[in-house]
Design a protein around this nucleic acid. Structure first.
Length: 812
RNA sequence: GGGCGGGUGGCGGAAUCGGUAGACGCGCUGGACUCAAAAUCCAGUGUUGGCAACAACAUGAGGGUUCAAGUCCCUCCCCGCCCACCA
């Protein structure tokens, strides 16, 4: 018998599949379509890592399974190639990022090929292709034309290491998520996309798609919709008004001070001469603090009194106005009404500065200094006695009547800062004309191709490297043809990935980002698998783009992804995140080349744990899955050698095992369980090993049993399955064969094993006829030697029978 | 502080509706084969007591509901992820 040597069969089949193009997705096919999407990789110099392998293997298993179920499957792959690592590499080695990127992609491609994925490579592209980013630019212009892309001078998060502005979502704990550098604030003119306009849609749309609650909740929290009121407070002895946002109008009588953010322009205006010096030095000190200092929750609350007072609109009491840097300038109005008795932060501040604390909500709990819980109003004039929730509405209504408040919804979500001061990104296709301002580059001049430059390093002052390319910058206004200059900022690395799935539907189109009829056929992604870390970045951004495109009538569905699943991270064997510095990185190519092969590796990364769970890599697991494949190999070959034997009747045992495993694998795959079907297949093979000793492959049930085994294994381990399929005499690919079906009639037995409990403890196991009556089962139990001993001298008080499963005798 | 997960053998993990806890794999132990080793095959493997049959205990801790709890309820502890001075 030939031995199982993966490297003898895997490249052979990979070539054959490529040659026969068996994984090609067909536009407009009559079969039902299924779009299986996994996040495309950034082609770094390190190549595919184990996390990629897990993600793409999972996608491949689903794609292959759906294909065998008769669907027209599109499983595409591309490269998200704009981004900082390539640029940093370019800066360091003075090599064009284009070249480094192409080298890396070649490396990735080789690894991809060695893993045997059923990807339709004819649809592949990279986001850095001018043919691709032409359409990224065109789509940006649709936002611009709809008024959703705008320029504004704002204080932004600035990474001093990368020398670029960052979106809110890219700052983690005051540091740039990519390089871990402390972020600074800088005032810069930036392009923004008005994602806040879609805040409600992004929340509401979640109810039409199948996202795990973990992901949906995270997006909802990130958007942070908060319903409340904007209330106007007059400043005493002044015509100025302070607007504040609050969700607790019911606590209005408990306001004992107001607080303005240091950046609030009113600070300058209302501060009295007496307090000016003090307030100024406080504001300067606050602004000198780093982001991380200002965001530290545990820090003592600081502030300064402005000398001014506001008037409470309900009782006309004067309220001192303070400046405090715990008030955020970019949320709400940059000013708050402070209710120390019912807000922890206001409470802390009041304690620091000996400001009064007035309880206006009373609740059951003992009289604490402050509570944020609901209760009944006290110290609130005519509103005393109202439940706080009701008071919230009543007071707001009254204030609206007197035009002192409006209903207001606030979001934590901020507009998406879309400018980067970098070379390696899509140029923003805008021309600045002295007369006409920002003008869109006309469609027939797209793409605005990224020019070659002398140096890739961004400038200290935040100018993009493109600013130094005179010949490129200087152009003419598309409206008036007067001299004008190009925008030099580029798009963030999230731009190209915001719509890439649509390009797979029609990757070569030069007239449109995708042909409408193809969009109508493929519609959207049926299942999208990716990392949890993209929940509030890529996944939110691309939903926003898609919803906008839907509103523009450019795509046929309101949501891009019908279902989303997030796969867990694979940690190193030491339990730490894999990283080069820790030396715990596992290279999938090494495992394949060590002789285990792609199939054993694929099984190992999937068998490890449920796909959505973070798990620790165990090097021995490949040995286990390799051993299993070897047993499948041996079994199949032994069967082939004994084929002549088959003359006996069917084996009920084999039939039952076969139909059981078909059922289990099918059902598990439909619920996206991938580790348990592999266990089921292992169990099945163990069973067949035992049964083969019995009948020497003589029963007529063997051919079906082996065939089912190979087919069920095919999505998981495509190479060995294809080889064994051929060995068993098939000429067509197993991957185009029809997924086996189980028949319940083989699963039914005429006997049932019943567990017998006495007082809830398992004491024996009985075999009785299926669907035996309670009377019969109890009788059988009474006759059982072991049970007899437990019933001795006792009376059966109660009998519980779970048909065909369990009998519990309660005795006493 | 808020949101969401989770805690089961030496390890990764199984366990529809509450119904035999520990499937499957790793590791370990013993045996077969071999001059020997590797590979392979077979058997065993939660803990405690016992030669054994068997019994008791056992799913983070404590209580409860139930004929029956890993699963449901209450109280608490611990771990992970995400967000965080968002009014």
């Amino acid at each position: 018998m030939r031995r199982y040597i993966p490297k003898d069969i895997e490249p052979k089949w990979q070539n054959k599949w490529a040659q026969d193009q068996i994984y090609k997705a067909v536009d407009f096919d009559d079969k039902a379509k299924f779009v299986m999407l996994t996040e495309f990789p950034y082609p770094s110099g390190d190549g595919l890592h184990l996390g990629h392998t897990r993600e793409y293997t999972l996608g491949d298993i689903i794609a292959r399974h759906k294909r065998m179920q008769g669907m027209n499957v599109l499983y595409p792959m591309g490269y998200d190639a704009f981004g900082l690592p390539a640029e940093n590499y370019a800066i360091k080695n003075n090599i064009a990022p284009q070249l480094a990127t192409d080298e890396n992609i070649a490396k990735f491609q080789k690894q991809f090929d060695s893993l045997g994925y059923s990807i339709d490579w004819s649809r592949s592209f990279k986001t850095t292709d001018p043919d691709y980013y032409k359409w990224t630019q065109w789509l940006f212009l649709q936002f611009f034309k709809a008024g959703l892309a705008y320029q504004k001078e704002i204080s932004i998060n600035w990474c001093p290491f990368c020398k670029t502005g960052l979106a809110n979502e890219e700052v983690i704990n005051g540091r740039h998520e990519r390089c871990d550098t402390l972020v600074e604030k800088r005032l810069l003119k930036q392009w923004l996309l008005e994602i806040t306009k879609y805040a409600d849609r992004l929340i509401d749309g979640l109810s039409d798609v199948d996202f795990p609650s973990k992901i949906a909740d995270q997006q909802i929290n990130w958007i942070g919709r908060s319903v409340g009121a904007e209330i106007s407070f007059k400043v005493a002895d002044s015509d100025k008004i302070i607007e504040v946002f609050t969700t607790r109008t019911d606590t209005l009588f408990g306001v004992t001070f107001m607080a303005l953010a240091p950046e609030n322009p009113l600070v300058e205006i209302i501060t009295t001469e007496e307090h000016r010096a003090n307030v100024n030095s406080y504001v300067v000190a606050s602004q000198a603090k780093s982001e991380i200092e200002r965001q530290d929750v545990n820090r003592d609350k600081s502030g300064a009194f402005t000398g001014a007072y506001a008037i409470n609109p309900l009782n006309n009491q004067p309220i001192p106005i303070w400046v405090a840097d715990y008030v955020l300038s970019n949320y709400g109005t940059g000013a708050i009404m402070a209710v120390p008795a019912h807000d922890q932060r206001d409470f802390d501040f009041a304690n620091n500065f000996n400001l009064p604390i007035l309880r206006v909500v009373k609740n059951q709990e003992k009289d604490e200094d402050h509570t944020e819980d609901e209760g009944v109003l006290v110290n609130s004039g005519v509103y005393n006695g109202l439940p706080s929730q009701e008071a919230r509405e009543t007071i707001l209504k009254d204030l609206i009547k007197t035009k002192q408040a409006t209903e207001k919804v606030n979001y934590r979500l901020r507009d998406w800062i879309f400018s980067r001061q970098h070379y390696w990104g899509e140029p923003i296709p805008i021309i600045h004309c002295p007369e006409h301002g920002a003008v869109a580059v006309p469609d027939d001049q797209l793409p605005v191709v990224l020019p070659e430059v002398e140096r890739y390093q961004p400038a200290e002052d935040g100018e993009s490297p493109l600013a130094s390319v005179e010949s490129w910058i200087n152009t003419h206004c598309p409206v008036c043809d007067q001299p004008a200059v190009r925008e030099t900022d580029t798009m963030p690395n999230w731009a190209g990935s915001s719509w890439y799935y649509l390009r797979y539907f029609d990757p070569k189109n030069t007239e449109a980002f995708a042909d409408r009829s193809k969009l109508d056929y493929w519609k959207n992604v049926d299942l999208y698998l990716g990392g949890m870390e993209h929940t509030t970045l890529h996944l939110l951004y691309s939903r926003f783009w898609h919803q906008f495109l839907y509103d523009q009538g450019l795509v046929p569905t309101p949501e891009p992804y019908m279902a989303r699943r997030g796969q867990g991270i694979v940690l190193g064997a030491d339990g730490a995140k894999m990283s080069k510095s820790k030396g715990n990185v596992v290279n999938p190519t090494e495992i394949i080349d060590n002789g285990y092969g792609a199939d054993a590796l694929r099984l190992a990364v999937v068998f490890l744990a449920p796909y959505d769970q973070t798990t620790i890599w165990s090097p021995e697991s490949v040995a286990g899955t390799y051993r299993f494949l070897q047993r499948v190999w041996t079994l199949t070959h032994e069967f082939e050698d004994h084929k002549g034997n088959s003359k006996e009747l069917e084996s009920l045992e084999i039939n039952r095992a076969t139909h059981q495993v078909i059922k289990r694998v099918s059902e598990d795959l439909s619920t996206l369980d991938f580790n348990t079907p592999i266990a089921a297949l292992m169990e099945y093979v163990n069973t067949l090993y035992k049964l083969k000793v019995k009948d020497e492959f003589a029963s007529q049930s063997w051919p079906t049993a082996i065939e089912a085994l190979i087919q069920l294994l095919a999505p998981f381990a495509p190479h060995i399955a294809e080889e064994l399929w051929e060995v068993s005499g098939h000429e067509d690919s197993v991957h185009l064969s029809q997924w086996p079906k189980w028949d319940d009639k083989y699963l039914i037995s005429d006997t049932a094993r019943i567990v017998v409990q006495v007082n809830g403890k398992v004491r024996a196991e009985l075999v009785v006829g299926v669907d035996s009556t309670e009377e019969d089962v109890v009788k059988a139990a009474r006759d059982d030697q072991k049970i007899k001993a437990y019933l001795e001298g006792k009376e059966i008080k109660r009998v519980i029978l779970v048909p065909n499963k369990l009998l519990n005798l309660v005795v006493g």
